[in-house]
Design a protein around this nucleic acid. Structure first.
Lengths: 225, 225
DNA sequence: GTCTATAACTTGATAGAC
DNA sequence: GTCTATCAAGTTATAGAC
């Protein structure tokens, strides 16, 4: 039988993903879990601690997996320059794999991650502190994959990539049908990831435009009537 | 002197951008505006109506401008295929211009837009219904700019682009210093936009990968020990 | 138009019986 | 461990004086 603690975590995960953190009351969560309101304070200390527990439950293994995949890939390089696609794949595949495992219930979790990307003031410090080193590690790999890109520019593009990915995660319900509609098959999250990666990779490889304030005459220069 | 109504809208815009909709109380908004709590119910009907008013105040002109720029560009094409960069520029420049105008106070507004992209269940219907036609119009332009891209794929990439842009908008405070640090000059949002567009455009033009489930052996196939 | 006062309700959290 | 009962605080919203 499922532990009460896990039932609460499952319900909270889903509720936070659906409604966001601030707008979701503990009462509605406990109603969804079918347990009493007081239980959440018994197992977790507070609402914030509950969110933290929801995140930690799955993120720990994801982060480990990310680092493992990256190191494995780099080990096979023998000094050659890493490919952006592979670095991205090492980072994204643990998350996408989570969605693909129906029993894992990682599906709402991914949506929650997408949301918290926007409500980032909520991402508890502890999570930030655990994700931080992983991000640094991947930033370093990207830097070596794109040695000619200014650090400034790399940082901006990394943010763009994070935002794009978070959007797909938030859109999961919509995207799900989209992915499956292709040939009537079941949604295939691995192939979905393989459609996201080319977009991001191409973005990272895009040439850095020289400033061109009003060169696009037809659009930006036609201010005056 | 500034109207009370506008003082409320300004304060609400900033507060919602800072803390999100659900987590921000009307009381804190009114404290920031320096007016009484009852005023908000006099001028606006409810908290939700206030959010709606905040959005409508600036989005109406932005949307008009977007359509104007797009039509102007297409008029000059004389039947040639539109360029992705120019379609994106027509869509994005009204927003980025808003940030660039300090007096306009559009700065918090853009952050708010970035947030609501994630809390999209909150985006009031009216706003959705006004933005919808604009999105359809631009989707059509993109379709003509990329006639070889499957509609399925175009849709996914459009979502990715929206997410990436929203992230930059949310990051505005951080990005601001980044943009200015480049050569000690003041933050230049026009050039920031010109750094975002190549990323997105390259993403749209990326080749559609054939499915390659486990071809990236080093990373995805090394499941078994 | 702007304020005070307060209604009506929901929230997170706790104490204590079982 | 799980429940009921309840607290204290904060919420949106309204009624009515000025």
């Amino acid at each position: 039988m499922i532990e009460t603690k896990d039932k609460i975590l499952d319900a909270a995960e889903k509720a936070f993903a659906d409604g966001g953190y601030a707008a979701t009351s503990l009462r509605s969560i406990m109603a969804g879990a079918g347990v009493n309101v007081a239980a959440v304070h018994y197992y977790f200390r507070s609402k914030e601690a509950l969110l933290e527990a929801v995140l930690m439950r799955r993120m720990e293994t994801s982060n480990r997996e990310r680092l493992r995949l990256l190191e494995e890939y780099e080990a096979g390089l023998a000094g050659r320059r890493p490919a952006v696609e592979e670095v991205l794949r090492a980072f994204l595949s643990p998350t996408f794999r989570m969605v693909a495992e129906p029993a894992q219930g990682g599906y709402p979790f991914v949506r929650l991650l997408g949301r918290l990307q926007a409500e980032s003031d909520l991402l508890p410090n502890i999570v930030q502190s655990r994700l931080g080193p992983v991000l640094l590690r991947f930033a370093d790999a990207l830097r070596r994959a794109l040695p000619d890109l200014a650090p400034n520019e790399l940082f901006l593009r990394a943010r763009l990539a994070m935002g794009a990915t978070a959007q797909v995660m938030r859109d999961a319900p919509m995207i799900k049908s989209l992915a499956g509609a292709q040939d009537g098959a079941l949604p295939d999250w691995n192939s979905m990831m393989e459609r996201v990666i080319p977009f991001l990779s191409a973005g990272f490889h895009a040439p850095v435009e020289a400033h061109r304030f009003h060169t696009a005459g037809a659009v930006t220069a036609k201010e005056s009537k």
